Simulated assay, not measured.
Amino acid sequence: MDEKALTQLKFPIGEFIKPEVISNDQIKEWVADIEAFPSRVKILTTNLSVEQLNWRYRPDGWTIKQVVHHCADSHMNSLIRFKLALTEDSPTIRPYHEERWAELIDSQDNDLSYTLSLLEGLHYRLVQLQRNLSEEDLKREFIHPEHGRRFTLAETIGIYAWHSNHHLAHIQQALGYQGKFLE
C-alpha cells in the first residue's frame, strides 16, 4: 500500500485544522459532536462479534476495541485538561503514551459495555462543562509540552470534536474493510 493510501486510512476525515476565527456557532457545533459521540460509538459497536472487535482500521493500526478504549482514555485526559485550565493559570499538562496505553490489558478487553458507559458519563460531564464556558473561559489555555505550545479551550473543543469524528470514521472504516486490506 502506498504512503498516500496509508495516510488516507490514518486520517479518513483529514487532520484537524484550527479555524482562524472560532465563532460561538462553531463551538456549539463542536459540542454537539462531542455530545453525540458516545451514542454513535454504541450504535456502531454494540452488536459486534469478538472477531469484528478485533478488525483493524488500517494495516498496523488499532483494532476497533482499542479505538473505543482509547477514546475513553483520551477524553478522560481532556476533561482533566479542561479542569486544569479553568482552575490554574496556563498549566502544563501531562501527556501520556497513548500507543502504550492501547496495549494494556484493559484496552484489549472484548467487553466494551463498561467503556461505553464510561464514555457516556464522561461526555455528559464534558458537555456540561463546555456549554457553560464564558468567553473568558474559552480563552483560557494549557501548555502541551509535546507540542511546545499553548492551546485555548475553544481550540481544544474543536480538537476533541475532530478526535471523536476521526475515530468514528476509523470504526466505520474497519467495518467497511471487514479487517482486510489490499496491499
Rank of each mutant, 00 (worst) to 15 (best):
W30R: 07
S90R: 13
L79E: 03
E3R: 12
E3H: 11
V127L: 08
L104I: 15
H97I: 14
G121S: 06
A32G: 10
P59Y: 10
S107Y: 08
S39R: 14
K10Y: 13
Q8V: 06
I157K: 00
Y177N: 12
D73S: 08
F82I: 09
L9K: 01
L112E: 00
H147M: 11
W101T: 09
H166I: 04
K4F: 11
P145I: 01
P38C: 02
I22S: 01
A161V: 09
A169T: 03
A32N: 14
A72Y: 01
A161M: 08
E29F: 09
W30N: 08
D73E: 12
Q8D: 10
E15V: 08
Y160I: 00
H144V: 09
Q26V: 05
L118W: 06
D109W: 10
G179R: 06
F142W: 12
G179K: 12
I17V: 15
S78H: 06
W30C: 02
L182A: 14
E135A: 15
L84K: 07
L126N: 03
H69T: 00
L44G: 00
K10R: 12
I159V: 14
M1I: 15
Q52E: 15
Y160T: 00
T156C: 08
I17Q: 08
P12I: 05
Y114W: 05
E141Q: 12
I13K: 04
D111F: 11
L175A: 07
I64P: 02
H123Q: 03
S90E: 15
R56H: 15
G179S: 09
F37I: 06
P12Q: 07
E136S: 13
Y177V: 03
Y124L: 06
V21L: 09
N47C: 02
G179E: 10
I17D: 06
H166W: 14
R94T: 14
L138V: 07
T92N: 08
K42F: 03
W62I: 02
K65M: 13
D109E: 13
E35P: 04
K10W: 05
H170Q: 11
L104W: 10
Y124H: 11
H147R: 15
R150N: 14
K18W: 01
V41F: 04
H147N: 11
L122H: 05
G14Q: 10
E51D: 15
L138G: 02
A32K: 14
L44A: 13
I171T: 10
L122N: 01
L129K: 13
L53A: 05
P145H: 06
E88V: 02
E88K: 15
T152H: 01
A5T: 15
E141A: 09
Q8L: 10
V50W: 03
E35F: 00
R58P: 02
V127Y: 03
V127N: 01
G176R: 07
D25M: 03
I27V: 12
H75E: 15
I22M: 05
T92C: 06
K42P: 07
